[in-house]
C-alpha cells in the first residue's frame, strides 16, 4: 500500500517525466533526424548571418583583419546618405510596382482562363511558360530585346513610325524596363495560384447568385474575391520577398545603371562587397536589408498562421 503510494508520487514527479520524455524514442529520433539539417543550415545560413552582423561593426576589405569601428556604418546609412536612400527607394519601387501589376495581370488572366473553352488547358500551359524560364535567360533575352539599334521593341516602334527609345541606357527608363521583364517572368505565378483557387469555388454559389439577378461584377466582388483573399495575401507576400531578394534580373539586365538609376539593394550590397571591396559597409547595408525582410516576413508568418487556424 505504502510502496504503491510512493511509486505514484515518483511517476508523477516532473523530473521523472522529463527523464522519460527525453528517453522516449520520438524526441531522441526527432533531434537525431534534424542533425544534418542543423549542420547544413548552421554552416551556410546561421553562422554567416552572425558573422555578417559582426562584420557590419567593422572596417573590412576582405584581406586584412577587420577593425572594430562600432556603429559608424549604421550612423552613415541613417544620417542622410543620399546614395543609400536612392537605392532603397528604387528597391521599394521595384518590389511594389512589379507586385501590384503582377497581381492585376494574374487576376485578369485567371478570370479569362476560368471560362470553359476548347483549348483552355493548352492556353493555361502556354501562359505558364515565362514562369518556367531561368532568370539568366529572361534577363539576357530582355536585354537583347531592349537594345537601341537592333532590339525588337525599337524595331516595332520604328514600324509604327515612332522614334527609337534608349531603354536601358537612360536613367529615365532603365528601372521601368527591368520591371516589365520581371513582371512578364512572374505574373503566371499569380495567374495559376488564383486559377487553382477559382476552380475550387463551388459553382452552386454562382448559380444561386445568378438566380438572384447579380451582375458579373457583383459575382466577382462578393464570391470570387473573398474566396481568393487568403491565397492573395500569401502569394503577394511571397512574391514581394522573392522580388526584394532577387539579384539576377537587375544585375544582368542593367547592372544597376546607368549611374544608380536602376540599382536595388542586393546588387548594391554585392558591388560594395566584391567590386568596391568595402565588406564592412556591405554587411551593414545587408543587415538593414535583412531587418526589412524579417519585419515583412513576420507579417507573412502571422497571416500564414491565421490561414492555418481557419482550416
Amino acid at each position: 500500500m505504502v510502496a504503491e503510494k510512493y511509486r505514484r508520487i515518483i511517476d508523477e514527479s516532473d523530473i521523472i517525466k522529463e527523464y522519460q520524455y527525453w528517453l522516449s524514442s520520438e524526441s531522441v529520433w526527432g533531434w537525431v533526424f534534424l542533425l544534418p539539417t542543423i549542420a547544413a543550415i548552421g554552416l551556410v545560413n546561421v553562422y554567416p548571418v552572425i558573422r555578417a552582423i559582426y562584420l557590419s561593426f567593422t572596417d573590412y576589405d576582405g584581406i586584412t583583419e577587420p577593425t572594430w569601428i562600432g556603429l559608424e556604418h549604421y550612423i552613415r546609412i541613417f544620417t542622410g546618405w543620399p546614395e543609400f536612400w536612392q537605392v532603397l527607394q528604387n528597391t521599394l519601387v521595384w518590389v511594389f510596382g512589379t507586385v501590384v501589376v503582377m497581381l492585376v495581370l494574374g487576376m485578369g488572366f485567371a478570370v479569362l482562363l476560368n471560362h470553359d473553352f476548347p483549348g483552355s488547358g493548352i492556353a493555361t500551359s502556354l501562359l505558364l511558360l515565362p514562369w518556367v524560364m531561368p532568370y539568366i535567360a529572361v534577363a539576357l533575352n530582355w536585354q537583347w530585346m531592349y537594345r537601341y539599334q537592333t532590339g525588337v521593341f525599337n524595331g516595332l516602334l520604328q514600324l509604327a513610325g515612332l522614334e527609337r527609345v534608349l531603354w536601358l541606357g537612360s536613367g529615365k527608363f532603365a528601372l521601368a524596363a527591368a520591371m516589365v521583364g520581371w513582371i512578364w517572368r512572374n505574373f503566371p505565378f499569380f495567374m495559376i495560384s488564383f486559377l487553382s483557387a477559382m476552380k475550387a469555388i463551388p459553382t452552386e454559389l454562382y448559380e444561386a447568385a445568378l438566380v438572384d439577378g447579380s451582375s458579373r461584377w457583383e459575382l466577382f466582388r462578393h464570391i470570387t474575391f473573398p474566396y481568393l483573399q487568403p491565397i492573395l495575401i500569401v502569394t503577394t507576400l511571397l512574391m514581394s520577398l522573392w522580388t526584394f531578394n532577387n539579384f539576377t534580373m537587375i544585375f544582368v539586365l542593367t547592372g544597376g545603371g546607368p549611374g544608380l538609376s536602376s540599382m536595388v539593394l542586393p546588387v548594391y550590397v554585392y558591388r560594395k562587397a566584391f567590386i568596391t571591396g568595402d565588406m564592412g559597409m556591405a554587411a551593414a547595408i545587408g543587415i538593414v536589408m535583412m531587418l526589412i525582410m524579417l519585419s515583412y516576413g513576420l507579417v507573412y508568418l502571422r497571416f500564414y498562421r491565421a490561414d492555418i487556424g481557419q482550416k
Binding site: T37, I41, L43, V44, N45, V46, Y47, P48, V49, R51, A52, L55, G62, L241, F244, N245, F247, L265, P266, V269, Y270, A273, F274, M279, A282, A283, G286, I287, M289, M290, M293, L294, Y296, G297, L301
Partner: peptide, 21 residues
C-alpha cells in the same frame, strides 16, 4: 518556424561571410 525565418535572410548578406568562410 525557424526554417521559414532562414528564408528571410537575404542571400546578398549571407554571401559575404560565406565567401570568407
Amino acid at each position: 518556424v525557424f526554417l521559414l525565418i532562414t528564408q528571410m535572410f537575404p542571400y546578398a548578406v549571407i554571401i559575404i561571410p560565406l565567401f570568407i568562410i
